[in-house]
Amino acid sequence: MNESRGVLPAPVEDLLDVALVAELTVISETGRPVTYPLIPLYDGQHIFMTSAVLFSRKLRHIKANPKVAVALTDPVGVPAEPFARATIQGDATVIEDDLHAGWETLLPLWRAKEPVIDSFVKKRFGIPLFFERSIIQIRPRRVLYWEGGATATAPQVFELAELG
C-alpha cells in the first residue's frame, strides 16, 4: 500500500483524487437515506463537496443530521487504475457564511481535478444562482474499501482513529 498523504488510506486517496462523481448519502429528517451524485474534493483532512442553493434539500438534511457517507463506485466517474470501490462515512458540516464567494476557496482543489471549472466560473453571470453555493465539509470517520471493486466480498474496514 502506498503511503497516505492525509487521514485516509492511500488507495482511497487515489480514488478521491480522480473521482469526478461520488454518491453522497445523507439522512432525511424522517430517517430515510437519500443519495446525491456530486463531485468530491479532498485536501488530506476533509472531503469537500459543494451544493448550489438551487438544490439545497441535502443541506437541510445535513443540518438536521450530520452523519453522511461518500461512496466511490462508478468506473466512469472514478477513472482510477486499478479500479476499486470505497465508502467513507463521516460527519458533515455545512459552511455558508459567504454563499457567493466562500466556496471559491475550494477552486484550487476543483481546478486540479476539473480545469474546466474556471471557464464555468467566468460565465457565472449566465446562471448566477448556480454559483451561490454552500460547502459541505466532511470529516472522515470510517472507510469501507473493496479492492478491485468486488463488493461480493467483505470490505476492508479502516477506523480512522486507528490510522493515526
Partner: peptide, 14 residues
C-alpha cells in the same frame, strides 16, 4: 444505501 446500526449511512455498489 441504508442507515447502519451506528447511525451512519452505509453505501455499497452491486
Amino acid at each position: 444505501s441504508f442507515v447502519g446500526a451506528d447511525g451512519y449511512p452505509v453505501s455499497v455498489a452491486g
